[in-house]
Design a protein around this nucleic acid. Structure first.
Lengths: 349, 349
DNA sequence: TTGTAGGCGTTATCAT
DNA sequence: ATGATAACGCCTACAA
């Protein structure tokens, strides 16, 4: 098993009878290099099977060419897409990735941050854990001026650029859609209201109610984790309400679907008895019956933009500090779960 | 934005009035170091905010501490879990990951392989693209004696360790289950028979038929891509068969689910008219109605074992060459889609 | 345009 | 047990 020796720029230099410096310059088409020698260098490099040594480059450049990613969990299709988007851009730009999960725990988020910090990542892309109330976990990065970009679950902070959708508007759209279908007793199923995505969605929901003269009832707020199991639990809570709701706007598809399935098992008809709108456009939306109306926004886009922004910043092409917030497009995708067969369309106000 | 200077072992040495070599040894608890100085070194290192420089280490060790991963696509929950499992182990062991997708194309697999090769990954974990007929894409790795471990979609090869389940047995179990439920006209819905996972599943299916004196009909073989859309297409093919099948064993859940949904839209009842068994235990199995019976095996386990094996090999703890094949456990998970309400249990033979 | 030489942070091989 | 020193492969002033 002989680990055949690697070709270095010295080897190429020797063959071409030039200095290693010239080879180095030729390889990275440095401005002050004659096209001829550059061509020669490139040719023999290829022919000799030269591969650059990133570690050596990192050593001189004092960079790791590595980006850290912290996500709450890799269990949703959405986060999957985000990471995929990040991966694509990072790959193309010659950056490596270290991905870690906080498991929705601020304490583990701190561990991840520390670990990535010790790995000397050049920058960080993160989405906050459910119980992270501030950005103190990232202070080590701020102190060393390492760029941090937050996506989806964010907190406004002078040191961070944020990438997200207009959650308020999205929730407003979703709720209004239910109202337009003739629903009035709308439950909002969401997670503990700490993260922006949940507080904003709540606010959007409330605004839509207000704009259509529907009184907000706090007993119509059901707080759960956003899992299928939690959704099933929510179904019980929901059925016990004195004033039986006629619809649900959930802040997450999985939770909505868990709830739908549990209700259906008890003989509740959807959307006849209770209509549903979810959030995230999980693939399961098209499997559950009836198909789930939901808010779609592209995880790939989130990931790609986050990575692009960070890498441009690292490469000095553009500064993060010029763009504090990026708001991406969202879209309401209407499916049967929210189409009211009885009441039809109803005018606003 | 001053990029505060990094602490090196020289700085620590200076403070402690010892040589950098001693610090280096102390930091990696080298056998020949006095416990006292070691303790001092560790203490001041922490206190000074020292972080090791992986690139410098890589340079001297002639390793990248990076593992390459090639998957056909990151669109299934299963592959998601595999990558997650790899990530967990690699993270803990201080290895970085470069993940790339072949998009089920051998040509892109070749590109990925080349790219990872140029990135000097220390080892490779791969699952083959749908149209990869041999391992020639990985010859560059074999030539340089860089370890390659294949998982799930594999080909036997003297240079590779393989990690997979007993697909033959799994398919046999699935098919037998349908037979025991009283089904006899069993369609097998699968992908082009090139990869082991599909040929083996076909063989297991055929063996089960044979063992129960059911004649194999080649018109009961439907070849599609393993997507929901393809499954919907398969539904049409299936309905056109002269001898209407009473059940389907699909080599993939998504495909099965797409097929089920399409059939249901045409008024076919499941499992009364046609029963279903899938493969992979995708989360959607518990969303579709009726819930889909399937073969489960742990993606996390696949990923963790693959990574563990590779890293142990790289660290010289154990050699890959001692273990040529790892067969993991699988399990039939019975759900309503395959429970025959009419015919009940039927004796074998 | 090209060459020289020093440095990036660490490890390993010698000595001591 | 510790110290000096030479790699590791590449980049970049600076000099020519």
């Amino acid at each position: 098993m002989p680990q055949s020796k690697e070709v270095t720029i010295y080897d190429i230099a020797r063959v071409l009878k030039v200095s290693p410096a010239t080879v180095s310059r030729g390889l990275q088409n440095h401005p002050h290099t004659s096209p001829k020698t550059k061509k020669k260098i490139l040719a023999t490099a290829r022919q000799m099977g030269y591969r650059h040594n990133q570690s050596a480059r990192n050593l001189t450049s004092k960079k790791s060419h590595t980006i850290g990613v912290i996500v709450p969990a890799l269990t949703s299709h959405f986060m999957f897409c985000v990471v995929d988007g990040i991966e694509k851009v990072a790959n193309k730009e010659g950056y490596n990735l270290i991905i870690s999960q906080s498991s929705e725990l601020s304490a583990r988020e701190a561990d991840s941050a520390k670990s990535l910090f010790n790995n000397r990542v050049d920058g960080l892309l993160a989405s906050l854990a459910l119980d992270s109330a501030d950005l103190s976990n990232f202070d080590i990065f701020f102190k060393k001026n390492i760029p941090v970009i937050l996506f989806d679950r964010v907190i406004e902070h002078s040191n961070c650029t944020n990438i997200l959708i207009n959650n308020h508007k999205a929730a407003y759209d979703a709720t209004t859609h239910l109202i337009m279908q003739g629903y009035e007793r709308i439950v909002h199923l969401s997670a503990p209201f700490r993260q922006n995505i949940y507080t904003e969605r709540l606010a959007g929901y409330q605004q839509a109610l207000a704009d259509h003269n529907i009184k907000f009832r706090k007993e119509y707020l059901i707080i759960e984790n956003m899992t299928m199991e939690a959704g099933a639990g929510a179904a019980n809570t929901l059925l016990k309400l004195k004033n039986r709701p006629d619809s649900v706007f959930a802040a997450d598809d999985s939770c909505a679907i868990g709830c739908m399935i549990a209700l259906k098992k008890k003989g509740i008809k959807i959307p006849e008895d209770i209509a549903f709108v979810g959030f995230n456009n999980d693939p399961s939306c098209k499997v559950v019956e009836p198909n789930l109306t939901t808010i779609h926004y592209s995880g790939h886009e989130v990931g790609e933009i986050a990575a692009r922004l960070l890498i441009n910043h690292l490469n000095g092409i553009a500064s993060i500090h010029e763009t504090k917030t990026v708001i991406l497009r969202h879209e309401l995708i209407v499916r049967e779960s929210s189409l009211n067969p009885n009441k039809g369309l109803k005018p606003i106000k």
